[in-house]
């Protein structure tokens, strides 16, 4: 009947995709990705390229920029270390134990993502200000949080809590209890089971969660500026400095700082990807299921 047609189509038949619509859907996806994501990002690097290295260096190495980066990075590191450890603990409690209010706690973890950052910002100020509950308490101990470096660190910590928990949690849920039981029958103590059996399996997701928390903290703006005090050289974060340069129509300077901030976040994420790739290479397919999808997380910024 249609012998000649199918002979022709047979030439490419083995490479054919069975589920139809591949060309159309991929085409639309790529167009969208180019216009919405890649074009704006490449514009930033285009602007940087026009700037030239000497000018770039002059902007980046100015005292005020360096100070802003120092404040941003140190506070982000603080937030990351806290969230990595606290996130592990929180995930453990939620996955391994049953207790009243567990579902509420589980839902609360997402609050920092769901809450607009500006709201988080003024709520934190209200809490840690001289007249706030925490502020008054801490003032008695002569600790000042609002409008200091500590305020910035706390705001960053608050907004990145979910990363620490939500990256580790699904992996922890997928851990098989019988492996731990096997370790116990072989004479391992609880702490040894955690150290030698559980943590090695969690390690890749732990690293990934920490690096995502770090990237997010580097870029956090809304929550921080309310509590930071925004004093140049002291409590001014890099994102705010970009904003200030923009208000002065100093696009080159804004782009230089933004490009550096972006690169810093990307380098951390790429390093984390490589590290988790190595650490997870011998893990079962299931345990690293999330890793095949490097950044597909349960969390929702």
């Amino acid at each position: 009947m249609s012998t000649s047609i199918s002979h022709a189509s047979r030439q490419r038949s083995s490479a054919r995709r069975v589920i139809p619509g591949f060309g159309l859907t991929l085409g639309v996806t790529l167009l969208f990705v180019c216009l919405i994501i890649l074009l704006p990002l490449s514009a930033l690097f285009f602007q940087l390229g026009q700037l030239g290295f000497a000018d770039y260096w002059r902007i980046i190495s100015s005292d005020r920029t360096l100070a802003a980066f120092r404040v941003t990075i140190s506070a982000a590191l603080m937030a990351t270390v806290f969230n990595a450890c606290f996130g592990l603990l929180l995930a453990w409690v939620i996955v391994r134990y049953k207790f009243p209010g567990k579902r509420l706690l589980d839902a609360l973890i997402d609050l920092p993502f769901a809450l607009p950052t500006a709201v988080a910002g003024i709520a934190l100020v209200a809490l840690y200000d001289r007249n706030g509950w925490m502020g008054m308490l801490l003032a008695e101990m002569n600790i000042k949080v609002a409008y200091t470096w500590w305020g910035i660190a706390i705001a960053m910590t608050f907004t990145s809590v979910p990363f620490g928990v939500r990256t580790v949690q699904p992996v922890m849920e997928s851990l098989k209890l019988d492996i731990e039981e096997a370790a116990q029958t072989l004479g391992a103590r609880d702490i040894q089971v955690f150290r030698h059996i559980i943590f090695p399996q969690l390690w890749p997701s732990f690293i990934m969660g920490a690096s995502l928390a770090f990237a997010r903290s580097l870029g956090e703006f809304g929550a921080v500026i309310f509590i930071a005090g925004n004093m140049p050289y002291k409590t001014e974060i890099a994102s705010l400095l970009i904003m200030i340069r923009l208000d002065e129509y100093d696009f080159p300077a804004a782009s230089a700082i933004a490009g550096t901030l972006l690169l810093l976040a990307l380098v951390v994420l790429v390093l984390a990807n490589i590290a988790t790739g190595r650490a997870g290479r011998h893990l079962s397919r299931e345990a690293k299921g999330w890793q095949l999808q490097p950044c597909i997380l349960r969390c929702a910024p």
Binding site: P40, L41, L218, I242, M243, S255, C295, I296
Partner: peptide, 28 residues
Amino acid sequence: LVTIIELPFSISPIVAGLCYLLVYGSTG
């Protein structure tokens, strides 16, 4: 492709805004 779609999560909102100004702003 999956990684590129995820990119906006790890980019500072300020940086994102700036990128858009650079492309779609009147001097972009």
